[in-house]
């Protein structure tokens, strides 16, 4: 088990390393392009050459990569052109804002979808199951940008009870979080609920649940002790992977509601070709994604006695 955890973490480090190589190759191999993007299009070739020389861009590529990686590892991502300040200063507050948003969203998505999924899966084919399933398909079919439009139209245009943007211009305001969280929840809960339902429904048809029922145990006991323990292993993994999906949704939601979060920053950086900021944002995003996947893998192994004790 310990070896397995070490292996997974090693694998995660390896993936991050590979991603950093790809990223470096994509954005920094062509040093002329870097110079243009950092000091601007309307500079003379001499100015650029000087800049490249001064910033060590004339060293061999491997050396450049290693030194870049060293700086990245200690959190020094360079200076953002667009924000005219160190990347770290821009990045971390934005990441924090997104963490707040994602926490609220996950805090609703997880209990909601688990409860719905279990209720639906307990009695497969019942009216409740059908209603929940169709609702879930319906909500996952509305992309975030569309549900954002619908929700904004309803709460701002028709009812006029919520602020139309979430820029937090006058300091933190929970009301401004309502719509972004609602959009994320609407799009994401259906998927987790359906996975939970499928897992629960499968467990309910297994022979060991039949054994428990035919041993005369009370229904509640059968569900709590015999079914749920097996049924929740798969959704747990899904929930961890959902963080990866949420990150995509976050970009759309932040852009739509002008929320000053990490997703909007990433898009901003990409559109303005802010090389160092793109690198930093991508690495953070991949780190979060790979990290949650690693946790999911380890937890799956831990939860599953068939793998844990062999």
């Amino acid at each position: 088990m310990l070896l397995f955890i070490l292996k997974r973490i090693g694998f995660m480090a390896l993936t991050m390393l590979a991603v950093s190589v790809v990223l470096f190759a994509l954005l920094e191999i062509d040093k002329e392009k870097v110079a243009v993007r950092v000091i601007g299009q309307y500079t003379t070739p001499e100015q650029r050459a000087l800049w490249l020389e001064r910033n060590g861009y004339n060293r061999p590529i491997v050396e450049r990569y290693v030194s870049w990686l060293g700086h990245v590892a200690i959190g020094d991502f360079g200076r953002s052109v667009r924000y005219q300040s160190p990347v770290a200063d821009v990045l971390w507050p934005r990441v924090w804002n997104t963490v707040i948003l994602a926490t609220y969203a996950l805090g609703i998505i997880v209990p909601l979808s688990l409860v719905l999924g279990i209720l639906a899966g307990m009695r497969e084919g019942s009216k409740l199951d059908r209603a929940i399933s169709v609702t879930c398909i319906g909500t996952t079919s509305v992309p975030e940008f569309a549900s954002a439009v619908f929700i904004a139209a309803l709460f701002v245009f028709v009812l006029g009870i919520l602020p139309g943007t979430s820029s937090m211009a006058d300091g933190f305001n929970v009301l401004e979080l309502v719509m972004p969280v609602m959009v994320l929840v609407l799009y994401d809960f259906g998927y987790v609920a359906r996975m939970t339902r499928a897992s629960m429904a499968e467990v309910m048809t297994t022979q060991y649940v039949r054994t428990a029922v035919l041993a005369g145990l009370p229904y509640a006991r059968v569900i709590w002790k015999y079914a749920l323990r097996n049924a929740l292993i798969a959704p747990f993994t899904v929930i961890m992977l959902q963080v990866n999906w949420l990150l995509s949704g976050v970009i759309v939601v932040e852009v739509f509601f002008s929320y000053k979060g990490f997703g909007a920053l990433l898009l901003d950086a990409s559109l303005s070709q802010d090389v160092y900021l793109i690198e930093a944002c991508t690495l953070v995003a991949v780190f979060v994604a790979v990290g949650t996947q690693t946790i999911a893998d380890i937890a799956y192994t831990y939860l599953n006695p068939r793998i844990r004790f062999t």
Partner: peptide, 12 residues
Amino acid sequence: YQEPFAALNPAL
């Protein structure tokens, strides 16, 4: 039952 492995709960 016919298949003892399936009849026993793998998680308990």
